[in-house]
Design a protein around this nucleic acid. Structure first.
Lengths: 342, 342
DNA sequence: TTTCAACACGAAAACGTTTTCGTTCCAGTA
DNA sequence: TACTGGAACGAAAACGTTTTCGTGTTGAAA
């Protein structure tokens, strides 16, 4: 087991000073041709690599970006990570991943850990509990300390930082418009409680689409789910009582539960009822019938977030600064859970 | 925007020396009651937190563990990360996630990046390309430098380090035994090419189960898939030509493709053909019919890996060292893709 | 009154870099 | 000969900690 090579050791070995070694390796013109060659040869031979920690301390930057997400066992978030990782790596950054488990306290703890020098900036999506509480002091604090932050997907209006979101309203609208186009008139909505911003916005899109097509909004056809745990039973109970020919669900799970309970009632998807979900994941693709969904382009969101963050990191903060919000467009992926267009 | 508070600034502000501040904050008995209280109050009030980077440099450890996985958009790996993250956080460690994209070069690059001080140790699962090449010099190198490593799932025999694996042979055997128990006799195997160790081992289990039950092994019923991309078509073609009553697939995707093509042929799952997959994910659970699978307990594997690594990190390396291999047992989750037991 | 602990605190080194500012030496010029 | 200027290199500070080893002051014992 050989310990790591350092500048000091090279210097001692070659009988020059530490500064000479450092300069030689960075191709400084201050160092004579001969010594430079000798040092570089030695370093190469013994595979010298500068110590990142020392560099971080010196340069006051870590070349690491922290990403905090509510949960990782969730297709959408993994695609986002994947996107972040991709551009981060291209730009020479590492990615430190933390999980908030949808808990406010863990989110705060994670931020505090990473804010003390471990990262140069943050990319995060808020925990459900955080959104519910509306307490963003931890964010305000790190931003105030000069750490760039990018919020994605689950964002908060009142935080001033860069944001990457999808147009949930338009996404929802698109889905419902499609249902209308293929002939549905009695369209149910399965959404989440309103403090989850995306649920609220997609609900908004649902209502807009109906209104624009002169279909009146029947609040009885709207289900708002609080707890993931009981969603399956709730959806089943909800659909059993109602006569619908279309369902728009704000995520994959709800959509699939809907399909299941429709089947259980002896009806067919898509012949009797068409179903559209949100967030295009493996599940939607592989399900039988495969699900028509509004695709969220997590990878793109991750890439945009990383680009935004790194851009801010790499320029002097003195330049005229303003915060951007990037809206990643949604797409509609048509599969087998909807009737074909007439 | 206020810059971070440091010991030096506190010292200057309170007109004491840096060392006094440091000692006071660490409750050293060297410092008088009064000054200590004053310093602690000041630090608390202005929310002083020591700089992690400086600590890392001083202590020569980062309290960070690196995890390198082939791909993140894969349920099994995310559950592993989740497990690692959980115990790492409990023990005060951060997790640096890198993706190899199944590429040898990216794996090497990632390890080099992290090995230069960013990380105290590694947890990794080998890239497919790496296993194919059989080139593990990058691993040998970091281990040789005294960095502890834990390999999980996709491991290499010839690397001496801690390992966390599942008993793939027994897992495969269990599945096939179950198929036999419910009356299947013509059991197909859909596996991967042999250099992926798990594919090889599960195939082994398949053969063992057949042999033990006096069913002779028909190589024509074994399909080995190289490329994920074309798997669906390959499986379809394979199954169309063969008369089977049971299928054991070495992952979720293959299992689902199998179910699909069986359906397409007008046969029923599970009435005509029973199907068992490997790796229990969201997909298996939500699929219709839900899949009977061998569950791999990714979370457990992540937890065990992290525990193993941290244990090694936190004791002096001088103690009698040897490498452990933890075998996480598999379970069989019976769902709707298999006939009920007679 | 002298001597010696005990106490309370500070100076400095160390971790591994980069960078600024000398310093030395020698060739070339006046 | 004396001076200038550049080339080649080294010393030291700095990043923010922790820790070892002083050092000065006090009070009590001799």
């Amino acid at each position: 087991m050989k310990p790591k090579l350092t500048l000091k050791k090279i210097a001692k070995e070659l009988d020059v000073s530490i500064s000479t070694v450092s300069k030689a390796l960075r191709d400084s013109s201050e160092i004579g041709e001969e010594t430079r060659a000798k040092i570089k040869a030695f370093a190469k031979h013994y595979n010298y690599k500068p110590n990142n920690i020392a560099l971080s301390l010196k340069n006051r930057k870590t070349k690491t970006i922290g990403i905090i997400i509510p949960e990782i066992v969730h297709h959408f978030f993994t695609t986002v990570i994947s996107g972040v990782e991709k551009v981060a790596n291209e730009m020479g950054y590492n990615v430190l991943v933390c999980l908030s488990d949808n808990s406010f306290d863990k989110e705060v703890l994670n931020m505090e850990m990473l804010a003390n020098g471990s990262t140069d900036g943050f990319i995060l999506s808020l925990a459900k509990e955080t959104m519910q509480k509306g307490d963003y002091h931890h964010l305000a604090e790190v931003i105030n300390q000069g750490m760039p932050c990018v919020l994605f997907d689950r964002v908060a209006e009142d935080i001033s930082c860069d944001k990457v979101i999808i147009d949930d309203v338009t996404g929802g609208k698109k889905a419902v418009q499609y249902l209308i186009d293929i002939g549905c008139r009695k369209i149910a909505l399965i959404s989440t409680v309103d403090y989850v911003s995306v649920g609220k916005l997609r609900t908004h899109g649902y209502k807009q689409a109906l209104a624009e097509n002169g279909i009146n909004i029947n609040e009885d056809l709207i289900l708002k789910i609080e707890e993931m745990e009981d969603s399956e039973k709730e959806i089943e109970a909800f659909l059993k009582e109602r006569d619908v020919d279309g369902v728009f669900a704000v995520n994959e799970h709800f959509a699939i539960s809907a399909v299941k309970s429709i089947h259980d009632q002896g009806k067919k998807v898509p012949d009797d009822v068409s179903v559209i979900g949100f967030t295009d994941g493996e599940l939607s693709k592989r399900f039988i019938p495969s699900l028509t969904t509004v695709s969220q382009h997590g990878m793109r969101m991750g890439e945009e977030s990383a680009r935004l963050l790194i851009e801010k990191l790499e320029r002097t903060p003195s330049e005229d600064d303003y915060y951007k919000t990037i809206i990643v467009e949604t797409g509609l992926v048509v599969r087998d859970s909807t009737k074909s267009r007439k």
